[in-house]
């Protein structure tokens, strides 16, 4: 039986599957690094926007609305092409040449490529502005009366935050935060435009080499589904297993 015409000729050779798997690993690694940095920066941004100090509030607020209201693609391009103008030439030269450190037992560590760094920076800044909004929304769900009651009991500001606000907020924040992490996985796909060899990039590469568009995108889509749904399941399982604070 001949396959339908839209399927093209045959199936992907094993080494192309290898490319796609490699791309998926790159996507996962980039998403993990972005999630870590974005969470830390998101906490800082949230704290700054909660601060009574105008000098902290306004820069953080401006940062968030700038990053939330412009396309991620433009931000990625801006950092990739624009960083050269911001950094001294010597630094750029160092960043653009490969570096490797030897580790014990024959392992070695590569300094990431410039594309990878620009992608990581752009995605982290973008995601941090969204994460800080989720954190702020979670903290705001704790009723004001509870804080007042805690203060009346003689608790310090830190104690109020640690024992009253945080435990309740964490429960509310978990799900939206998980949503942000899956968004990070999906957003890493944009870094293909600056040449980061993640899953979308490799699917396009496989497509142009083999001309098997359907197969290449089907495998890539499945891998994305695995990564995203895997993250969702892992996150909600942890939520169920954790004791209620």
């Amino acid at each position: 039986m001949t396959p339908p015409s839209w399927l093209g000729q045959g199936w992907l050779a094993p080494h192309y599957l290898g490319w796609l798997l490699h791309g998926a690993a790159m996507t996962a690694a980039l998403a993990l690094c972005v999630s870590l940095a974005a969470t830390l920066l998101g906490i800082l941004l949230c704290a700054a926007q909660d601060s009574p100090l105008r000098a902290l509030y306004w820069p953080a607020h401006l940062f968030c609305s700038l990053h939330r209201n412009t396309p991620l693609l433009v931000q990625v391009l801006l950092w990739y092409f624009g960083a050269g103008g911001l950094l001294p030439d010597v630094t750029m030269q160092w960043l653009n040449t490969p570096h490797q450190w030897a580790l014990p037992l024959g392992f070695s560590l590569d300094w990431p490529s410039f594309e990878w760094l620009a992608a990581w920076l752009a995605l982290s800044l973008y995601s941090a502005s969204f994460i800080s909004a989720e954190l702020a929304a979670g903290l705001n769900t704790v009723a004001r009366g509870q804080k007042l009651a805690a203060r009346a009991l003689g608790m310090s500001e830190w104690q109020i935050f640690r024992f009253i606000v945080l435990p309740q907020a964490l429960r509310v924040i978990r799900q939206p935060l998980l949503g942000q992490y899956t968004a990070v996985i999906k957003n890493t796909s944009l870094t293909m435009v600056i040449g980061v060899a993640e899953l979308s990039y490799t699917s396009r590469q496989v497509e142009s080499e083999t001309l098997l568009a359907f197969q290449a995108f089907a495998v890539a889509t499945l891998l994305y589904l695995l990564l995203v749904i895997g993250t969702q399941l892992a996150g909600s399982r942890q939520a169920n297993g954790a004791p209620d604070a």
Binding site: K186, N187, S200, S203, F217, T221, Y224
Partner: peptide, 11 residues
């Protein structure tokens, strides 16, 4: 909802 917009554009 689980796949990147970019992937859908390729499709």
């Amino acid at each position: 909802r689980a796949i990147p917009v970019l992937m859908l554009i390729f499709w």
